[in-house]
Write a protein that binds this DNA or RNA. Structure first.
Lengths: 198, 198
DNA sequence: ATATAAATACTAACACCGTTAGGGTAAAGG
DNA sequence: CCTTTACCCTAACGGTGTTAGTATTTATAT
């Protein structure tokens, strides 16, 4: 009897419909305007149904945060694979990171807004760890390729990521994507690579 | 007759008591937990009184944002004046910026959180413009002192600030101030100055 | 001194929000 | 056919920002 299977399947359908409706609302009105009641309205169920699929609102946002990291991870690995030399890879990744942030502002703001909901530290999100691991590996290669005193890849990762995140978030605060942005990006990354090569 | 003067003075007293009570609440419970009703409770007035002094809640937060920029401006000018050479000034300013961010987290999060409330762009806040002007001037000096092809100070300001802001905000997302922070700060600023000097 | 005008502060409401307790209904199992 | 279980809904609690309308106090003018 596939009754319980059907029920599980239907339950799963409702869960994905919650996520779909919620994300549509985020796209339409921004994630600050997302509310449980609006989601319930959209899926034509009552409010408590949502709480039988997610512990609370933060749990829903956490799903989107993970989705965001998966997209970002895809973007930076694509950027990496578009180049052979480690230095060029770092440039391509920087560009991919920047493009992701501005093509998916909602994701980026959720991921790096005011701390990830329901998590003590960002590193508790597996998708986040994958992100840093990927970058550290590329930076390690770049360090190995350089003929300078070896430095710590983790330190340099933090520097690299800080530059990228700073650029993006300041640009987002300003609300307008000025023509400066691209220049600043290239300038900052060039400086980083120059420092990496001694 | 000093009656209207007394009234104006009393009105001003209420206004400052609103701001004081609000800021105490921010310090105690974080600025996300700030509410008009709590302020009204603290100053022992009814809710609508607050709306006769501020157009809305965002207007109150905007006051704190300005206060924050004033403090930050003081901090970085102090940092600048503690050194003679422009490169050393940039290092001191970076340290001052970092100290400000972590000694006044509430201010920093308000200033650079999710965009300044009730403002189209940050640059509309005069205190913010003073901040960038100060930094641009120091960077211009550093460029003039260097014996390399001249670059645009505004571009370099954005790079410098992005690095600082990225460092600080990633560290804040992580919630824990790791021992890495100081190293990353010094590393990133050293890289910036190196790039500035060619 | 008293009536009028104005400034002030209040209560109460509106329209939301996240979250949950409790009851009714429909579906499954015996 | 009845019982039990799983599901879902209504309604509420306690909170939010904001405002309309009213009462009260204060100052002015008669």
């Amino acid at each position: 009897m596939g009754i319980v299977e059907r029920r599980l399947r239907q339950k799963e359908e409702v869960k994905t419909s919650i996520l779909q409706a919620a994300w549509q609302l985020v796209l339409d009105e921004g994630w600050q305007a997302l509310s449980i009641r609006k989601i319930a309205d959209a899926i034509e169920y009552s409010v408590p149904v949502i709480y039988s699929h997610f512990e609370n609102k933060d749990a829903i946002l956490l799903e989107f945060t993970k989705d965001g990291f998966r997209l970002l991870n895809d973007a930076i690995t694509s950027g990496r694979d578009s180049q052979q030399e480690a230095g060029l890879q770092l440039e391509a990744i920087a560009q991919a990171y920047w493009n992701f942030a501005f093509n998916h502002k909602e994701y980026y703001q959720l991921m790096f807004g005011l701390g990830i909901p329901a998590c003590e530290t960002v590193n508790q999100v597996a998708e986040m760890k994958e992100f840093s691991d990927t970058l550290i590996a590329v930076i390690q290669q770049a360090i190995n390729a350089s003929n300078t005193p070896k430095v710590d890849a983790f330190l340099k990762f933090h520097t690299y990521w800080s530059i990228l995140h700073g650029l993006v978030s300041i640009q987002m605060i300003d609300r307008k994507t000025s023509p400066w942005s691209q220049l600043v990006l290239k300038d900052a990354i060039a400086g980083f690579i120059k420092a990496l090569n001694g």
